[in-house]
Amino acid sequence: MSRPQPDREVAVAVQKLRLCYAKRGRLRFASHRDFQRALERALRRANVPMAFSAGFNPHPKISYANAAPTGTASEAEYFEIGVVEKVDPDQLREVLDHAMPDGFHIVDVVEASTPDFVARLEASLWRIRLVDVDGEAVRAAVAAFLAEERVEVDRATKDGHRTLETRHVVVSLDAPDGAPDDRGRPCVILTAVVRNETPSVRPDDLLNALRLVGGLALVVPPEVTRLAQGPLDPQAGTVGDPFAPDRAR
């Protein structure tokens, strides 16, 4: 015997908001699913008037854009929510940030007033901190990579392996020396602007490419942070603010 769908009223979203969050420190080891669960619970603790989908198993209306891989930190991850009562973006930022576990931080909120947000996330600015490496060797590897037209790497997937071309999405790649770490080991800060394409080229693919063409060898796992995501300025090679059109209206 099947039962009819529940007759609870489904409140319609009256406002959409776009949120930028950071994933810092120890919580960079959280997966995207871990973040999703933490966010849904924080929304409940903060009493955010979420809109829900219909049916026996309603879900809060949240859509996510390109999540950074597990293990990488980020200052620029994005999602959008629908609410059934209007909320003030600044106030939402404050209460939701407070409700999130330490390491997930809501850094910016705007009311969504323009279409095609995800398309605006054209490129990412990555900072990859390499510890216990020789700066000259890293810069030689970078030069070798940039001199190539194509650099294909192998990535292990659930179903086996796939080949990925890494060179064409890299807009810029620098490798200045950084300050030594707390144990006095030398550091190099790789800085890369990479186009967000599908399939996406991740920092570990890039390091793999540097290993292949330039013999880059790492002893200590790198510390990776996405510093920005947004529209790519093709002339300057910089990554802009994806919220700018929403803010302008």
Binding site: R26, L27, F29, A42, P101, G103, V220, P221
Partner: peptide, 23 residues
Amino acid sequence: VFSRLEELLPLVSKPVQYVGGEV
């Protein structure tokens, strides 16, 4: 011992289980 543990975490499965930081 977190700073020493931190360098091992990228090498193991499900590292988030070891970091704490729960609400």
